[in-house]
Design a protein around this nucleic acid. Structure first.
Lengths: 197, 197
DNA sequence: CGCTTAGCCTAACGATCGTTAGTTAGGGGC
DNA sequence: GCCCCTAACTAACGATCGTTAGGCTAAGCG
Protein backbone atom coordinates (compact mmCIF):
# COMPACT_ATOMS: atom_id res chain seq x y z
CA UNK A 1 0.00 0.00 0.00
CA UNK A 2 3.01 2.27 -0.26
CA UNK A 3 1.94 3.68 -3.64
CA UNK A 4 4.97 5.47 -4.93
CA UNK A 5 2.99 6.73 -7.90
CA UNK A 6 -0.61 7.10 -8.94
CA UNK A 7 0.07 4.95 -11.95
CA UNK A 8 1.23 2.12 -9.69
CA UNK A 9 -1.90 2.40 -7.58
CA UNK A 10 -4.01 2.04 -10.71
CA UNK A 11 -2.14 -1.05 -11.78
CA UNK A 12 -2.50 -2.54 -8.33
CA UNK A 13 -6.28 -2.29 -8.18
CA UNK A 14 -6.48 -3.31 -11.84
CA UNK A 15 -4.50 -6.46 -11.03
CA UNK A 16 -6.94 -7.24 -8.27
CA UNK A 17 -10.03 -6.73 -10.43
CA UNK A 18 -8.62 -8.36 -13.57
CA UNK A 19 -7.70 -11.40 -11.52
CA UNK A 20 -11.06 -11.93 -9.92
CA UNK A 21 -13.41 -10.87 -12.74
CA UNK A 22 -11.22 -11.08 -15.81
CA UNK A 23 -10.01 -8.28 -18.08
CA UNK A 24 -13.01 -8.13 -20.41
CA UNK A 25 -15.50 -8.12 -17.55
CA UNK A 26 -13.74 -5.26 -15.77
CA UNK A 27 -14.49 -1.73 -16.95
CA UNK A 28 -12.35 1.36 -16.64
CA UNK A 29 -15.06 2.75 -14.39
CA UNK A 30 -14.78 -0.31 -12.13
CA UNK A 31 -11.09 0.42 -11.64
CA UNK A 32 -11.81 4.08 -11.04
CA UNK A 33 -14.52 3.30 -8.51
CA UNK A 34 -12.05 1.24 -6.47
CA UNK A 35 -9.89 4.36 -6.32
CA UNK A 36 -12.85 6.65 -5.48
CA UNK A 37 -12.36 8.55 -8.69
CA UNK A 38 -14.23 9.14 -11.95
CA UNK A 39 -13.52 6.82 -14.85
CA UNK A 40 -12.31 9.53 -17.17
CA UNK A 41 -9.78 10.68 -14.59
CA UNK A 42 -7.68 7.59 -15.16
CA UNK A 43 -6.74 8.76 -18.64
CA UNK A 44 -4.46 11.37 -17.11
CA UNK A 45 -2.23 8.47 -16.01
CA UNK A 46 -2.94 5.79 -18.57
CA UNK A 47 -3.25 5.80 -22.32
CA UNK A 48 -5.67 2.90 -22.72
CA UNK A 49 -7.22 0.01 -20.88
CA UNK A 50 -5.08 -2.48 -22.74
CA UNK A 51 -1.96 -0.55 -21.73
CA UNK A 52 -2.80 -1.26 -18.11
CA UNK A 53 -3.11 -4.97 -18.82
CA UNK A 54 0.10 -4.87 -20.80
CA UNK A 55 1.99 -3.15 -17.99
CA UNK A 56 0.84 -5.81 -15.53
CA UNK A 57 1.58 -8.74 -17.82
CA UNK A 58 4.93 -7.35 -18.94
CA UNK A 59 6.12 -6.75 -15.41
CA UNK A 60 4.99 -10.16 -14.23
CA UNK A 61 6.71 -11.81 -17.18
CA UNK A 62 9.92 -9.94 -16.41
CA UNK A 63 9.75 -11.03 -12.80
CA UNK A 64 9.41 -14.68 -13.76
CA UNK A 65 12.22 -14.40 -16.30
CA UNK A 66 14.59 -12.68 -13.91
CA UNK A 67 13.89 -15.16 -11.13
CA UNK A 68 14.43 -18.10 -13.49
CA UNK A 69 17.67 -16.62 -14.77
CA UNK A 70 18.95 -16.17 -11.24
CA UNK A 71 17.76 -19.63 -10.15
CA UNK A 72 19.49 -21.35 -13.05
CA UNK A 73 22.70 -19.47 -12.30
CA UNK A 74 22.70 -20.43 -8.66
CA UNK A 75 21.85 -24.05 -9.40
CA UNK A 76 24.70 -24.22 -11.88
CA UNK A 77 27.05 -22.72 -9.32
CA UNK A 78 25.94 -25.15 -6.61
CA UNK A 79 25.82 -28.34 -8.65
CA UNK A 80 27.09 -27.81 -12.18
CA UNK A 81 25.31 -29.90 -14.77
CA UNK A 82 22.78 -31.36 -12.36
CA UNK A 83 19.35 -31.28 -14.05
CA UNK A 84 17.45 -32.12 -10.88
CA UNK A 85 19.04 -29.23 -9.05
CA UNK A 86 18.24 -26.91 -11.92
CA UNK A 87 14.58 -27.97 -12.16
CA UNK A 88 14.20 -27.72 -8.40
CA UNK A 89 15.60 -24.21 -8.45
CA UNK A 90 13.33 -23.20 -11.33
CA UNK A 91 10.22 -24.56 -9.64
CA UNK A 92 11.06 -22.90 -6.35
CA UNK A 93 11.76 -19.58 -8.02
CA UNK A 94 8.50 -19.80 -9.96
CA UNK A 95 6.47 -20.48 -6.85
CA UNK A 96 8.17 -17.64 -5.01
CA UNK A 97 7.36 -15.11 -7.70
CA UNK A 98 3.82 -16.39 -7.97
CA UNK A 99 3.05 -16.33 -4.25
CA UNK A 100 4.88 -13.02 -3.91
CA UNK A 101 2.18 -11.22 -5.89
CA UNK A 102 -0.86 -13.38 -6.48
CA UNK A 103 -2.85 -10.73 -8.29
CA UNK A 104 -0.21 -9.77 -10.79
CA UNK A 105 0.81 -13.38 -11.38
CA UNK A 106 -2.78 -14.50 -11.70
CA UNK A 107 -3.39 -11.90 -14.38
CA UNK A 108 -0.24 -12.97 -16.16
CA UNK A 109 -1.26 -16.61 -16.11
CA UNK A 110 -4.89 -16.17 -17.12
CA UNK A 111 -5.45 -12.85 -18.87
CA UNK A 112 -2.59 -12.47 -21.34
CA UNK A 113 -4.88 -13.82 -24.06
CA UNK A 114 -6.89 -10.61 -23.90
CA UNK A 115 -3.99 -8.58 -25.28
CA UNK A 116 -4.00 -7.42 -28.89
CA UNK A 117 -2.50 -9.72 -31.52
CA UNK A 118 1.06 -8.38 -31.51
CA UNK A 119 1.47 -8.18 -27.75
CA UNK A 120 -0.30 -11.49 -27.37
CA UNK A 121 2.11 -13.29 -29.64
CA UNK A 122 5.04 -11.53 -27.98
CA UNK A 123 3.91 -12.95 -24.65
CA UNK A 124 3.43 -16.35 -26.25
CA UNK A 125 7.03 -16.29 -27.44
CA UNK A 126 8.30 -15.32 -24.02
CA UNK A 127 6.24 -18.06 -22.41
CA UNK A 128 7.67 -20.58 -24.81
CA UNK A 129 11.22 -19.42 -24.10
CA UNK A 130 10.48 -19.75 -20.40
CA UNK A 131 9.09 -23.24 -20.84
CA UNK A 132 12.16 -24.10 -22.94
CA UNK A 133 14.29 -23.69 -19.82
CA UNK A 134 12.41 -26.58 -18.29
CA UNK A 135 12.50 -28.62 -21.49
CA UNK A 136 16.27 -28.19 -21.72
CA UNK A 137 16.95 -29.50 -18.23
CA UNK A 138 14.49 -32.34 -18.63
CA UNK A 139 16.15 -33.35 -21.88
CA UNK A 140 19.57 -33.23 -20.22
CA UNK A 141 18.28 -35.27 -17.29
CA UNK A 142 16.97 -37.96 -19.58
CA UNK A 143 20.31 -38.14 -21.39
CA UNK A 144 22.07 -38.54 -18.05
CA UNK A 145 19.61 -41.13 -16.80
CA UNK A 146 18.63 -38.90 -13.89
CA UNK A 147 15.16 -38.52 -15.32
CA UNK A 148 12.83 -41.18 -16.60
CA UNK A 149 12.55 -41.44 -20.35
CA UNK A 150 9.56 -39.37 -21.33
CA UNK A 151 8.50 -36.64 -23.74
CA UNK A 152 10.27 -33.46 -22.57
CA UNK A 153 7.70 -31.20 -24.18
CA UNK A 154 4.75 -32.89 -22.51
CA UNK A 155 6.56 -33.17 -19.19
CA UNK A 156 7.47 -29.48 -19.25
CA UNK A 157 3.92 -28.44 -20.13
CA UNK A 158 2.45 -30.63 -17.43
CA UNK A 159 4.94 -29.41 -14.87
CA UNK A 160 4.33 -25.76 -15.63
CA UNK A 161 0.58 -26.26 -15.68
CA UNK A 162 0.80 -27.86 -12.26
CA UNK A 163 2.68 -24.99 -10.67
CA UNK A 164 0.75 -22.31 -12.56
CA UNK A 165 -2.44 -23.81 -11.21
CA UNK A 166 -1.25 -22.46 -7.90
CA UNK A 167 -2.37 -19.03 -9.11
CA UNK A 168 -5.95 -20.31 -9.01
CA UNK A 169 -6.00 -21.80 -5.54
CA UNK A 170 -3.24 -20.20 -3.51
CA UNK A 171 -4.50 -18.21 -0.57
CA UNK A 172 -1.95 -16.06 1.30
CA UNK A 173 -3.99 -16.60 4.47
CA UNK A 174 -4.38 -20.29 3.84
CA UNK A 175 -3.45 -23.36 5.78
CA UNK A 176 0.14 -23.56 4.56
CA UNK A 177 2.73 -20.80 4.18
CA UNK A 178 4.16 -20.22 0.72
CA UNK A 179 7.46 -21.83 1.65
CA UNK A 180 5.82 -25.11 2.58
CA UNK A 181 3.82 -25.18 -0.59
CA UNK A 182 7.01 -24.56 -2.56
CA UNK A 183 8.62 -27.54 -0.81
CA UNK A 184 5.74 -29.79 -1.76
CA UNK A 185 5.67 -28.63 -5.36
CA UNK A 186 9.41 -29.08 -5.76
CA UNK A 187 9.07 -32.63 -4.43
CA UNK A 188 6.13 -33.43 -6.68
CA UNK A 189 7.90 -31.97 -9.70
CA UNK A 190 11.09 -33.94 -9.19
CA UNK A 191 9.22 -37.16 -8.52
CA UNK A 192 7.25 -36.60 -11.68
CA UNK A 193 10.50 -36.67 -13.62
CA UNK A 194 12.86 -38.87 -11.67
CA UNK A 195 13.52 -42.47 -12.57
CA UNK A 196 14.04 -43.40 -8.93
CA UNK A 197 13.70 -41.81 -5.54
CA UNK B 1 -21.56 -30.88 -37.79
CA UNK B 2 -24.57 -33.16 -37.44
CA UNK B 3 -26.66 -30.55 -35.67
CA UNK B 4 -29.64 -32.39 -34.39
CA UNK B 5 -31.14 -29.15 -33.10
CA UNK B 6 -30.65 -25.45 -33.64
CA UNK B 7 -30.02 -25.05 -29.95
CA UNK B 8 -27.13 -27.48 -30.17
CA UNK B 9 -25.62 -25.63 -33.11
CA UNK B 10 -25.70 -22.43 -31.08
CA UNK B 11 -23.94 -24.07 -28.15
CA UNK B 12 -21.32 -25.52 -30.47
CA UNK B 13 -20.26 -22.24 -32.00
CA UNK B 14 -20.55 -20.57 -28.59
CA UNK B 15 -18.13 -23.15 -27.18
CA UNK B 16 -15.71 -22.36 -29.95
CA UNK B 17 -15.88 -18.60 -29.45
CA UNK B 18 -15.98 -18.69 -25.65
CA UNK B 19 -12.89 -20.88 -25.66
CA UNK B 20 -10.79 -18.71 -27.89
CA UNK B 21 -11.91 -15.20 -26.85
CA UNK B 22 -13.49 -15.78 -23.47
CA UNK B 23 -17.13 -15.42 -22.44
CA UNK B 24 -17.10 -11.72 -21.60
CA UNK B 25 -15.31 -10.80 -24.82
CA UNK B 26 -17.80 -12.71 -26.97
CA UNK B 27 -21.08 -10.99 -27.83
CA UNK B 28 -24.38 -12.53 -28.73
CA UNK B 29 -23.94 -10.95 -32.15
CA UNK B 30 -20.58 -12.67 -32.55
CA UNK B 31 -22.23 -16.03 -32.01
CA UNK B 32 -25.04 -15.11 -34.40
CA UNK B 33 -22.58 -13.99 -37.07
CA UNK B 34 -20.89 -17.37 -36.98
CA UNK B 35 -24.30 -18.86 -37.75
CA UNK B 36 -25.04 -16.29 -40.49
CA UNK B 37 -27.98 -14.98 -38.53
CA UNK B 38 -29.00 -11.78 -36.75
CA UNK B 39 -28.17 -11.45 -33.07
CA UNK B 40 -31.74 -11.08 -31.95
CA UNK B 41 -32.73 -14.27 -33.73
CA UNK B 42 -30.89 -16.36 -31.16
CA UNK B 43 -33.41 -15.44 -28.49
CA UNK B 44 -35.94 -17.72 -30.13
CA UNK B 45 -33.77 -20.62 -28.99
CA UNK B 46 -32.04 -19.29 -25.92
CA UNK B 47 -33.23 -17.32 -22.91
CA UNK B 48 -30.02 -15.47 -22.12
CA UNK B 49 -26.33 -15.36 -22.87
CA UNK B 50 -25.46 -16.79 -19.48
CA UNK B 51 -27.83 -19.70 -20.11
CA UNK B 52 -25.69 -20.69 -23.07
CA UNK B 53 -22.57 -20.66 -20.94
CA UNK B 54 -24.37 -22.58 -18.25
CA UNK B 55 -25.54 -25.25 -20.68
CA UNK B 56 -21.99 -25.74 -21.92
CA UNK B 57 -20.43 -25.81 -18.47
CA UNK B 58 -23.12 -28.05 -17.01
CA UNK B 59 -22.84 -30.58 -19.79
CA UNK B 60 -19.06 -30.64 -19.63
CA UNK B 61 -19.16 -31.09 -15.86
CA UNK B 62 -21.60 -33.98 -16.24
CA UNK B 63 -19.35 -35.61 -18.79
CA UNK B 64 -16.35 -35.43 -16.48
CA UNK B 65 -18.38 -36.73 -13.55
CA UNK B 66 -19.85 -39.62 -15.49
CA UNK B 67 -16.48 -40.63 -16.91
CA UNK B 68 -14.88 -40.50 -13.47
CA UNK B 69 -17.67 -42.56 -11.95
CA UNK B 70 -17.29 -45.20 -14.63
CA UNK B 71 -13.48 -45.16 -14.39
CA UNK B 72 -13.51 -45.64 -10.65
CA UNK B 73 -15.95 -48.53 -10.99
CA UNK B 74 -13.87 -50.30 -13.57
CA UNK B 75 -10.65 -49.76 -11.63
CA UNK B 76 -12.26 -51.19 -8.53
CA UNK B 77 -13.49 -54.18 -10.49
CA UNK B 78 -10.06 -54.76 -12.04
CA UNK B 79 -7.90 -54.25 -8.97
CA UNK B 80 -9.99 -53.68 -5.85
CA UNK B 81 -8.44 -51.28 -3.38
CA UNK B 82 -5.51 -50.37 -5.59
CA UNK B 83 -5.05 -46.58 -5.41
CA UNK B 84 -2.59 -46.46 -8.31
CA UNK B 85 -5.04 -48.25 -10.55
CA UNK B 86 -7.81 -45.89 -9.50
CA UNK B 87 -5.77 -42.74 -10.08
CA UNK B 88 -4.56 -44.03 -13.44
CA UNK B 89 -8.14 -44.70 -14.49
CA UNK B 90 -9.26 -41.26 -13.34
CA UNK B 91 -6.49 -39.49 -15.19
CA UNK B 92 -7.08 -41.45 -18.36
CA UNK B 93 -10.82 -40.81 -18.23
CA UNK B 94 -10.23 -37.12 -17.64
CA UNK B 95 -7.90 -36.83 -20.60
CA UNK B 96 -10.33 -38.70 -22.82
CA UNK B 97 -13.22 -36.40 -22.00
CA UNK B 98 -11.02 -33.36 -22.43
CA UNK B 99 -9.56 -34.34 -25.76
CA UNK B 100 -12.95 -35.60 -26.92
CA UNK B 101 -14.35 -32.07 -27.01
CA UNK B 102 -11.65 -29.45 -26.61
CA UNK B 103 -13.97 -26.49 -26.99
CA UNK B 104 -16.52 -27.54 -24.42
CA UNK B 105 -13.87 -28.72 -21.98
CA UNK B 106 -11.82 -25.59 -22.45
CA UNK B 107 -14.84 -23.45 -21.60
CA UNK B 108 -15.53 -25.60 -18.56
CA UNK B 109 -11.95 -25.28 -17.33
CA UNK B 110 -11.51 -21.56 -17.93
CA UNK B 111 -14.85 -19.77 -18.16
CA UNK B 112 -16.97 -21.12 -15.31
CA UNK B 113 -15.95 -18.09 -13.24
CA UNK B 114 -18.09 -15.91 -15.51
CA UNK B 115 -21.30 -17.52 -14.28
CA UNK B 116 -23.55 -15.74 -11.81
CA UNK B 117 -22.91 -16.24 -8.09
CA UNK B 118 -25.24 -19.17 -7.50
CA UNK B 119 -24.26 -21.20 -10.55
CA UNK B 120 -20.64 -20.29 -10.00
CA UNK B 121 -20.63 -21.67 -6.49
CA UNK B 122 -22.56 -24.74 -7.64
CA UNK B 123 -19.80 -25.43 -10.14
CA UNK B 124 -17.19 -24.81 -7.47
CA UNK B 125 -18.83 -27.43 -5.27
CA UNK B 126 -18.92 -29.96 -8.09
CA UNK B 127 -15.28 -29.28 -8.91
CA UNK B 128 -14.34 -29.86 -5.31
CA UNK B 129 -16.29 -33.12 -5.20
CA UNK B 130 -14.49 -34.17 -8.36
CA UNK B 131 -11.11 -33.28 -6.91
CA UNK B 132 -12.07 -35.17 -3.74
CA UNK B 133 -12.06 -38.39 -5.77
CA UNK B 134 -8.36 -37.85 -6.39
CA UNK B 135 -7.70 -36.81 -2.80
CA UNK B 136 -9.39 -39.94 -1.50
CA UNK B 137 -7.27 -42.32 -3.57
CA UNK B 138 -4.10 -40.39 -2.81
CA UNK B 139 -4.87 -40.56 0.88
CA UNK B 140 -5.51 -44.28 0.66
CA UNK B 141 -2.31 -44.79 -1.30
CA UNK B 142 -0.29 -43.01 1.35
CA UNK B 143 -1.84 -45.17 4.07
CA UNK B 144 -0.91 -48.28 2.09
CA UNK B 145 2.62 -47.08 1.38
CA UNK B 146 1.95 -47.17 -2.35
CA UNK B 147 2.26 -43.41 -2.55
CA UNK B 148 4.94 -41.20 -1.12
CA UNK B 149 4.00 -39.29 2.01
CA UNK B 150 2.80 -35.91 0.89
CA UNK B 151 -0.09 -33.51 1.29
CA UNK B 152 -3.06 -35.11 -0.49
CA UNK B 153 -4.79 -31.77 -1.08
CA UNK B 154 -1.76 -30.17 -2.69
CA UNK B 155 -0.96 -33.30 -4.69
CA UNK B 156 -4.54 -33.52 -5.98
CA UNK B 157 -4.60 -29.84 -6.94
CA UNK B 158 -1.26 -30.08 -8.69
CA UNK B 159 -2.27 -33.23 -10.50
CA UNK B 160 -5.56 -31.81 -11.71
CA UNK B 161 -3.91 -28.56 -12.74
CA UNK B 162 -1.39 -30.52 -14.76
CA UNK B 163 -3.99 -32.44 -16.72
CA UNK B 164 -6.37 -29.50 -17.02
CA UNK B 165 -3.55 -27.52 -18.56
CA UNK B 166 -4.00 -29.84 -21.49
CA UNK B 167 -7.05 -27.80 -22.41
CA UNK B 168 -4.75 -24.88 -23.15
CA UNK B 169 -2.21 -26.60 -25.35
CA UNK B 170 -3.84 -29.70 -26.79
CA UNK B 171 -4.18 -29.60 -30.56
CA UNK B 172 -6.25 -32.36 -32.21
CA UNK B 173 -4.02 -32.06 -35.26
CA UNK B 174 -0.85 -31.99 -33.21
CA UNK B 175 2.22 -34.15 -33.12
CA UNK B 176 0.79 -36.80 -30.82
CA UNK B 177 -2.62 -38.49 -30.86
CA UNK B 178 -4.78 -38.12 -27.78
CA UNK B 179 -4.11 -41.69 -26.68
CA UNK B 180 -0.37 -41.17 -26.55
CA UNK B 181 -0.76 -37.98 -24.58
CA UNK B 182 -2.99 -39.81 -22.15
CA UNK B 183 -0.31 -42.47 -21.69
CA UNK B 184 2.28 -39.86 -20.88
CA UNK B 185 0.05 -38.00 -18.46
CA UNK B 186 -0.90 -41.19 -16.65
CA UNK B 187 2.79 -42.03 -16.26
CA UNK B 188 3.69 -38.56 -15.06
CA UNK B 189 0.79 -38.54 -12.62
CA UNK B 190 1.65 -41.86 -11.06
CA UNK B 191 5.33 -41.04 -10.82
CA UNK B 192 4.41 -37.79 -9.14
CA UNK B 193 2.75 -39.76 -6.38
CA UNK B 194 4.58 -43.06 -6.19
CA UNK B 195 7.23 -43.82 -3.63
CA UNK B 196 9.08 -46.08 -6.04
CA UNK B 197 8.90 -47.09 -9.64
C1' DC C 1 -56.95 -24.63 -48.67
C1' DG C 2 -56.07 -23.37 -43.95
C1' DC C 3 -53.44 -24.00 -39.68
C1' DT C 4 -49.34 -24.70 -37.12
C1' DT C 5 -44.67 -24.35 -36.20
C1' DA C 6 -39.83 -23.18 -36.69
C1' DG C 7 -36.82 -19.89 -37.86
C1' DC C 8 -35.51 -15.56 -39.01
C1' DC C 9 -36.16 -10.64 -39.78
C1' DT C 10 -36.09 -5.34 -38.62
C1' DA C 11 -36.28 -1.87 -35.23
C1' DA C 12 -35.53 -0.34 -31.17
C1' DC C 13 -35.00 -0.08 -25.82
C1' DG C 14 -31.88 1.54 -22.09
C1' DA C 15 -27.47 0.62 -20.32
C1' DT C 16 -22.76 0.59 -20.50
C1' DC C 17 -18.49 0.62 -22.94
C1' DG C 18 -13.64 3.04 -23.97
C1' DT C 19 -12.26 7.39 -24.79
C1' DT C 20 -11.83 12.68 -25.70
C1' DA C 21 -12.30 17.54 -24.52
C1' DG C 22 -12.20 21.26 -21.76
C1' DT C 23 -12.20 22.95 -17.06
C1' DT C 24 -11.29 23.46 -12.09
C1' DA C 25 -8.89 23.12 -7.45
C1' DG C 26 -4.79 23.16 -4.81
C1' DG C 27 0.05 23.41 -3.71
C1' DG C 28 5.25 24.43 -4.34
C1' DG C 29 8.90 27.20 -6.60
C1' DC C 30 10.25 31.57 -8.71
C1' DG D 1 1.65 37.50 -6.78
C1' DC D 2 2.31 34.58 -10.65
C1' DC D 3 3.03 30.00 -12.79
C1' DC D 4 2.85 25.52 -13.53
C1' DC D 5 2.11 20.90 -12.30
C1' DT D 6 -0.65 17.18 -10.58
C1' DA D 7 -4.90 15.31 -10.14
C1' DA D 8 -9.20 15.49 -10.34
C1' DC D 9 -13.80 17.01 -12.36
C1' DT D 10 -18.19 17.27 -15.73
C1' DA D 11 -20.05 16.39 -20.12
C1' DA D 12 -20.36 14.11 -23.91
C1' DC D 13 -18.95 11.27 -28.26
C1' DG D 14 -20.10 7.12 -31.01
C1' DA D 15 -20.13 2.29 -30.53
C1' DT D 16 -21.67 -1.77 -28.73
C1' DC D 17 -23.93 -4.43 -25.28
C1' DG D 18 -27.98 -7.87 -23.87
C1' DT D 19 -32.53 -8.07 -24.68
C1' DT D 20 -37.62 -7.28 -26.19
C1' DA D 21 -41.47 -6.69 -29.47
C1' DG D 22 -43.79 -7.68 -33.41
C1' DG D 23 -44.08 -9.22 -38.05
C1' DC D 24 -42.68 -12.13 -42.18
C1' DT D 25 -41.61 -16.59 -44.75
C1' DA D 26 -41.61 -21.34 -45.83
C1' DA D 27 -42.39 -26.10 -44.97
C1' DG D 28 -45.41 -29.91 -43.10
C1' DC D 29 -49.88 -31.76 -42.54
C1' DG D 30 -54.87 -32.28 -42.17
Amino acid sequence: MVEVSRRQAIEDVASDLFRERGYAATSIRDIARALSVQGASLYAHVTSKEDVLWAIVDRAASRFEAAAERAEGEAERRRPGDPAEAVAALVRAHVEVLTGDVDESGVFVREWRSLGPERRSAVLARRDAYEARFRRHIHAGIALGTFEMTDPAIAASALLSAINGLASWYDPKGRLPAGRIADHLVDLSLRMLSSES
